[in-house]
Every structure is written in structure tokens, then in C-alpha cells.
């Protein structure tokens, strides 16, 4: 289920970058990079988490604002890389 994937990414983001924040504030469309939540080092950490969690590999050119700016886009990219993620 992609909902479960969203939840897992959200949990990670809350834990690592938004400690103490009300979980309701972070939605699947909250801007992460343009919204100042993830800087370049944080984005790299997120990518390492996704690679380990889902066994996918990111190309360097994929680590950008277009792909990582919202949870929804991250899920889309994961599914594109590994359709089984959505099952």
C-alpha cells in the first residue's frame, strides 16, 4: 500500500527533522526542500534511509527538488523504481 509507505516516510521525517511537531501538520504535499525542512545534507540522509528501507538505489541526478520536495513525490519515485513497493 502506498499509504503505508507514506506513513513510514512521514514517521522518519518527523523523527529526524521535525521533533516535537504535531504530526497533523506534515501532509503528503507539504514542501520539504522549498519549505526549508530539508537542507542538502538532510536530503542525503533521507535518500540513504529510503535506499536501506526499500532496497532501491538512487542516481545522483535523482536527488533533487523535483523528486524529493513532498512525501507524495517521494512515494511516486519509489513506486517507479520498484513497483512492488505499492503492493
Amino acid at each position: 500500500m502506498s499509504d503505508a509507505v507514506s506513513e513510514k516516510i512521514k514517521d522518519y521525517l518527523m523523527r529526524e527533522f521535525l521533533p516535537g511537531e504535531n504530526p497533523d501538520e506534515l501532509t503528503t504535499t507539504t514542501p520539504l526542500i522549498t519549505g526549508g525542512i530539508l537542507d542538502s545534507i538532510a536530503a542525503l540522509k533521507l535518500v540513504i534511509f529510503l535506499e536501506e528501507e526499500y532496497g532501491v538505489a538512487f542516481e545522483a541526478h535523482e536527488v533533487n527538488r523535483e523528486n524529493l520536495d513532498t512525501i507524495a513525490r517521494i512515494v511516486q519515485l519509489l513506486i517507479a523504481k520498484k513497483p512492488a513497493v505499492a503492493q
Binding site: L18, E21, N22, E25, T30, T34, G35, G36, I37, D39
Partner: peptide, 19 residues
């Protein structure tokens, strides 16, 4: 304001390295 809101405000008003 929520942490998300304040970070977004910073991103709109300050260079990233100042957040």
C-alpha cells in the same frame, strides 16, 4: 506557529544557510 510553518517562513525570507 508550527515548526513546518516557521521553517517555510525562514525559507522564504532568509538564504538557506541562515535557517
Amino acid at each position: 506557529p508550527s515548526l513546518i510553518e516557521i521553517k517555510r517562513f525562514c525559507a522564504e525570507n532568509l538564504p538557506l544557510y541562515m535557517i
